[in-house]
């Protein structure tokens, strides 16, 4: 299969390792990965902040980068960016009276997948150790990000993949379904409420004694990681792509 990588802006700029890991996993399965060059961002920061006309060029750019015949499916290592592509782009096009854009958005959305969704539903991977050679000898806990959990209904896809990695110990995170408090510009506009939410997430992560907290959204992980780091807590955060890409020959060291 020819798979288009939508790196997402935050992974592109801040976590290139995660994009590389995604590429590695897919190549290991024998797929060709392309990177549509003019991609930038899904636009959810603008949309969620209420800046619709400002979101439009961002969304149009994404759609023109991905509304091509040059690939079979697109993948992003992010639940919220995929949720935006699938659900918000049509909403924006509707709002700004752009039926043409809505139609194209639906086409792109229909073949854009979050990483665990692609691996589980499209590529049929159920055992990361056996099928991807994943090996990660550490104890982790796992935070399911809200948009993946609720907008994309990923259910246990990410967690099941993590649990099937060789050498890993997965400690259950108490109150895992609670938002970490990121919410894009929410963490700026309502930074104190956001901090109060983050504080509880940090406490819960520390209570698991895991050495790191894994997840599927770089932005939430940056937020949680920022809170862990500031509070002086030991655990760090890591994207599940990095864990799945880690092998016995090339163990990923966070």
């Amino acid at each position: 299969m020819r798979i288009a990588l939508f790196a997402t802006c935050i992974v592109d700029a801040m976590y290139p390792d995660t994009a590389h890991a995604t590429v590695k996993i897919l190549r290991r399965l024998g797929h060709e990965v392309i990177f549509p060059e003019n991609q930038a961002c899904c636009g959810q920061m603008h949309i969620n902040s209420g800046y619709m006309p400002e979101a439009l060029p961002v969304v149009e750019n994404h759609i023109s980068a991905f509304d091509t015949e040059g690939y079979d499916v697109a993948v992003a290592p992010s639940g919220s960016c995929v949720a935006s592509v699938r659900h918000q782009h049509g909403f924006l096009a509707d709002r700004l009276g752009r039926p043409d854009l809505k139609e194209r958005a639906a086409r792109v959305g229909a073949r854009t997948y979050e990483l665990s969704q692609l691996l589980t539903d499209v590529l049929g991977i159920t055992d990361a150790a056996a099928e991807l050679g994943s090996y990660f000898p550490q104890s982790i806990t796992y935070h399911p990000s809200c948009h993946g959990m609720r907008s994309l209904k990923l259910e246990d896809r990410q967690l099941n993949l993590l649990k099937s990695v060789a050498g890993i110990t997965v400690n259950e995170l108490p109150e895992a379904d609670q938002c970490c408090g990121f919410g894009g510009t929410f963490s700026i506009k309502n930074s104190e409420v956001s901090s109060a939410m983050l504080e509880d997430k940090v406490k819960n992560i520390c209570s698991t004694n895991a050495s790191l907290c894994a997840g599927g959204d770089a932005s939430c992980l940056m937020h949680i990681g920022g809170g862990l780091s500031r509070s002086g807590a030991k655990p760090t955060t890591l994207h599940l792509a990095n864990i799945l890409a880690s092998t016995k020959d090339e163990v990923f060291l966070p």
């Binding site: 790196a7 992974v11 592109d12 700029a13 801040m14 976590y15 290139p16 390792d17 994009a19 590389h20 990177f35 060059e37 963490s187 700026i188 930074s191 104190e192 901090s195 983050l198 504080e199 940056m222 937020h223 990681g225 920022g226 809170g227 780091s229 500031r230």
Partner: peptide, 20 residues
């Protein structure tokens, strides 16, 4: 308000786009 309770990690020296 963000950095009142959260650190931001140092960015990489090169974006994924550049590396690709």
């Amino acid at each position: 308000g963000w950095t009142a309770s959260r650190d931001i990690p140092a960015p990489p020296s090169k974006s994924f786009r550049d590396q690709w």
